[in-house]
Write a protein that binds this DNA or RNA. Structure first.
Lengths: 154, 154
DNA sequence: CGCCGAAAGTGGTATATGCCACTAATTGAT
DNA sequence: ATCAATTAGTGGCATATACCACTTTCGGCG
């Protein structure tokens, strides 16, 4: 056996990705902890901030999130008064989201904390390496993945 | 402005990672759906399988998971009869885990489904590129990340 | 105008994960 | 042998995410 399974390493792209996501997630979460925000919430607030009163669907698409998952994730942020929603004027099906002043302040606060983690991480792995990794990840995220049609026996 | 925020792209390594993890996770989940397992459960069963009746802590460490999170994630698998636990003979604090015959069969079934997704993904991005990505991710996961000590003013 | 199919969200349910407080079992030092 | 410190897990609580079944709106068609 030249190929025993080293504990913790997997040939599964998905497993490897999740594993690293857990690791990095905790690091960024730790950094953001003083703000009371999780990494995901920070990312969401940021997306809303740059999105210009984006519709739920637009946010979900940008973050590659399920729309209903987004709805759930948004709730604590609404509850805590960081974001508010309102119906689109031209299409009442559409719900738009924006930061409240409190939310903007909280985002500003979190960005400072995030910067520390971001800098620290890039200091360890190298800014270029990090940019390359993000590029690869964005590329993967953009793939038009489809399971081969389940050949119906015939 | 040469640097407007393109919706969906982020300079945050964590956000980018999670975003791609969601995307890829859904792909693998879809592939595994016929088995009734999620990607995470598949990865967990696999880890248990190669771990040789591993202790909870060993699994958690290998997968970089919180120990309590592992406990929670394990529950549905125990409930469905895929894994069973037993106390270590020499240290009753330690709980070991193993696959049941049913669980082994389910894993075998899932591996076939997983292979389809894995092949499909690597066909799109290239096997070498995928291996390189996994290597980078494992490297990131292995980093000794630490927040710079919060200089206590002084 | 009235109806049908598409589009956007909501709520429920289930898994995924993390932190914290707490219990049980071990180990080490005296 | 005894007791403090450490180690391994558990349970509760909160967020993260997904899928599915619905409900409300729209947009287009006859």
């Amino acid at each position: 056996m030249t190929d025993v399974q080293e504990p913790g390493f997997s040939r599964c792209n998905n497993a490897t990705l999740r594993r690293t996501a857990r690791r990095l997630g905790r690091f960024y979460d730790d950094a953001l902890a003083p703000s009371g925000l999780k990494g995901t919430q920070f990312g969401l607030l940021f997306q809303i901030s740059v999105g210009g009163e984006p519709a739920m669907g637009a946010i979900a698409e940008a973050l590659i999130m399920d729309l209903s998952a987004l709805g759930h994730t948004l709730k604590p942020l609404v509850r805590d008064g960081y974001v508010e929603t309102f119906a689109d004027k031209d299409d009442r099906r559409v719900k738009r989201v924006r930061l409240t002043p409190t939310g903007q302040a909280k985002l500003d606060e979190a960005i400072k904390l995030w910067s520390v983690a971001q800098r620290q991480f890039e200091a360890m792995i190298g800014a270029e390496q990090a940019a390359k990794l993000r590029a690869t990840l964005d590329e993967v995220a953009a793939l038009n993945l489809e399971l081969p049609a389940a050949t119906p026996s015939s």
